[in-house]
Nucleic acid binder design. Structure first.
Length: 465
RNA sequence: GGUGGCGUGGCCGAGAGGCGAGGCAACGGCCUGCAAAGCCGUGUACGCGGGUUCAAAUCCCGCCGCCACCUCCA
C-alpha cells in the first residue's frame, strides 16, 4: 500500500514515490517572523507535523526543513515602527513561533534554517542565474527575468499575459518587465545590508527558500509544503529561481488551507488574527491540536468558539476512555501497528477525518468492552487507541503531553486525592445508611469546587471537571 | 480580466455514482438511590434548475450565493 498525496502542481492525487527509497525530504515554508503566530500559522505546523509523523510511521527517514524568514520588507518596516533593530523583532517572534509549535506538540524539524544565515548561498544563486541569463542587476537591485523562464506560471496555472501587473510596482525601479520579481533589494539608508557584487543590499522574499532547500535537501527533493496562499507568487517564484538554475526542485507540492474568521481569511494584514498564545491560555493545547489537526488539511476551517468547545468535548471522550481503561487493565503500551482502516485513511492524502472516525469507533468498542468487564478486549482497544493517537501526536500519555504533569503537580494531586477520599468515605457511609440527602450534599459541594464525582461498580471516582 | 476553491442534517465535519464516516446536541431505552459516564436505539442531509444513468450529494450543462490568489500573507 503506497501513500498517495495531492500534488498542487498536477492538481491530482498521485502515488508518492520518493527519490531515494526509504527516505523523504520535506521542505516547509515556515514563519516570516514579523509578528507572533496566529492559529492559521500553527495549523500549517500541525498539518505537516502529522504528515511527517505518518511518513515516519510508514518507515521513511524524514529530513524535515522548516525555514525561518527573519528578514523581509515587513520585518524591516515593523521593526522601524517599533523603533527596534530588525533582529530584535525577528528573534522575539521566532521564539513565539517556537513556543507555539512546541506547545501544540509539533516535533522540531530536522533543521530550521534562517534566511540571514544563508546570504552567501543566495549570492551564489543569483550569480548563477545572471550567468545563465535569467536574472539581471539594475539600480542596486537584482531581478528575475520572468520572460526568460518558459515554465513561469505552471504551478498556479496562470499565463503571465493574463495576470494583472503589480500596481504597487515602484515606478523608480528598473524592472524590464512588470512581472519580473525582485531577488535582492539594494539597501535604503538605515537598512541592514550585506555587500554583494551589485552593491550593499538584502534579500527579497523568495530567494531564501530556493537557497536553503538546495543546501539542505539538494537539487531535487520530495515534498515542498506551505499555505495555499503561497502558491503564487512565493512558490511560483521559488520554482523559477531553482529550475532556471538547473535544479529539479520539488517533486510534490502540498498546500494547506487556511483558518478563516467570519468567512474571511485570517491574516496579519486584516488584523483578525487569533493568536496562539492567547488560545493556549484559554484552551488546553492538546485540544487546540485536535481542533486544528482533525479537519482535512485542504479544507478551510471556519474558526468558531462553539466548534472549539465541541472539539474539547469530543477529545475528552477519548481521554476518559484512556483513564477508565487504565483503571481496569493497567498501564498499556500503544499497539505496534495502527488498525488497517486507520492506516488506509492516512495513506490516502492524509485523510485525518476518516482516521479520526476509526479512532472514535475504537473508543466505542473499548467502552463496550469496559462495560462488559472484558479486560482483554479493553486492553486491545486501549493499545489501538494509543497507537492512533500517537501518530496524530495527540496521546495524552506520551511525550510531550505526559511531561506536562510534572512532579509538583503529581505530588499535589496525591494530596488532593487523599483529601477527596476523606469526603468520599463520608459520602459512602451516608449512602450505606440511605441518607441520600447527605450524600448528595457532599457530591454537590465537591462539584462546586470543580471535583466531579461518579459512582462506578468499583466505587466512586473523581476527576477535575 | 485570469486562476483556484467552497455551499452536506439543529451544529461541526468527511465522502465523491448504488450500501447514511465520525463527533456534538436532541429524544427514547438500559444501568444508577438519584446522577454522571458508558452502552443500545432514533435522522430519509447534500445551494437552485435541467440532463446522463437501472441508480446522482457524487458525472455533465446552466444558474445563484460566498471566499481566495494575480508580486505583503500559513
Amino acid at each position: 500500500m503506497s501513500i498517495r498525496l495531492y500534488d498542487t502542481a498536477t492538481r491530482s492525487v498521485r502515488d508518492f514515490v520518493p527519490i531515494r527509497p526509504g527516505k523523504v525530504s520535506l521542505y516547509l515554508c515556515g514563519a516570516t517572523v514579523q509578528a507572533a503566530p496566529h492559529i492559521g500559522h500553527i495549523r500549517s505546523g500541525v498539518n505537516f507535523d502529522i504528515l511527517s509523523r505518518w511518513l515516519a510511521y510508514r518507515g521513511f527517514e524524514v529530513t524535515f526543513v522548516r525555514n525561518v524568514t527573519d528578514i523581509d520588507d515587513k520585518v524591516l518596516s515593523k521593526a522601524a515602527e517599533q523603533g527596534v533593530e530588525f533582529w530584535r523583532l525577528a528573534q522575539a517572534n521566532e521564539r513565539a513561533f517556537t513556543a507555539a509549535y512546541d506547545g501544540l506538540g509539533c516535533r522540531p524539524p530536522t533543521i530550521e534554517p534562517r534566511a540571514t544565515g544563508h546570504i552567501p548561498e543566495m549570492v551564489e544563486l543569483m550569480q548563477d542565474l545572471i550567468y545563465r541569463g535569467h536574472a539581471y542587476a539594475a539600480g542596486g537591485d537584482v531581478y528575475f527575468d520572468v520572460r526568460s523562464f518558459p515554465g513561469y506560471g505552471a504551478l498556479s496555472n496562470q499565463r503571465v499575459a493574463d495576470m494583472w501587473s503589480a500596481d504597487d510596482a515602484d515606478p523608480k525601479n528598473a524592472k524590464r518587465d512588470p512581472q519580473d520579481f525582485t531577488l535582492w533589494k539594494g539597501a535604503k539608508s538605515g537598512e541592514p545590508y550585506w555587500n554583494t557584487p551589485w552593491g550593499p543590499g538584502r534579500p527579497g522574499w523568495h530567494l531564501e527558500c530556493s537557497a536553503m532547500a538546495r543546501k539542505y535537501l539538494g537539487e531535487r527533493f520530495d515534498i515542498h509544503g506551505g499555505g495555499i496562499d503561497l502558491i503564487f507568487p512565493h512558490h511560483e517564484n521559488e520554482i523559477a529561481q531553482s529550475k532556471a538554475r538547473g535544479d529539479a526542485f520539488a517533486q510534490y507540492w502540498m498546500h494547506n488551507a487556511w483558518v478563516t474568521m467570519a468567512n474571511e481569511k485570517m491574516s496579519k494584514s486584516l488584523g483578525n488574527s487569533v493568536l496562539v498564545a492567547d488560545m493556549m491560555r484559554r484552551y488546553r493545547p492538546i485540544v487546540l491540536r485536535y481542533y486544528l489537526g482533525t479537519p482535512h488539511y485542504r479544507s478551510m476551517i471556519e474558526y468558531s468558539e462553539a466548534a472549539l468547545e465541541e472539539a474539547a468535548v469530543a477529545f475528552s471522550r477519548i481521554e476518559q476512555f484512556l483513564t477508565r481503561a487504565f483503571e481496569l487493565v493497567g498501564a498499556t503500551e500503544p499497539a505496534v501497528a495502527v488498525p488497517d482502516e486507520f492506516a488506509a485513511c492516512l495513506d490516502d492524502d492524509l485523510a485525518v477525518p476518516g482516521a479520526v472516525a476509526v479512532l472514535h469507533q475504537s473508543v466505542r468498542a473499548g467502552n463496550t468492552a469496559l462495560a462488559a468487564g472484558d479486560k482483554e478486549g479493553a486492553k486491545a482497544r486501549l493499545g489501538d487507541v494509543r497507537a492512533m493517537l500517537g501518530v496524530l501526536g495527540m496521546d495524552p500519555l506520551a511525550e510531550p503531553w505526559s511531561a506536562a504533569a510534572d512532579r509538583d503537580a503529581a505530588n499535589l494531586r496525591e494530596v488532593v486525592d487523599n483529601l477527596v477520599v476523606v469526603a468520599l468515605e463520608q459520602r459512602q457511609a451516608a449512602r450505606a445508611r440511605k441518607d441520600y440527602a447527605a450524600a448528595d450534599e457532599i457530591r454537590s459541594r465537591l462539584a462546586a469546587i470543580g471535583i466531579v464525582v461518579e459512582d462506578t461498580p468499583g466505587g466512586p471516582r473523581w476527576t477535575l471537571g
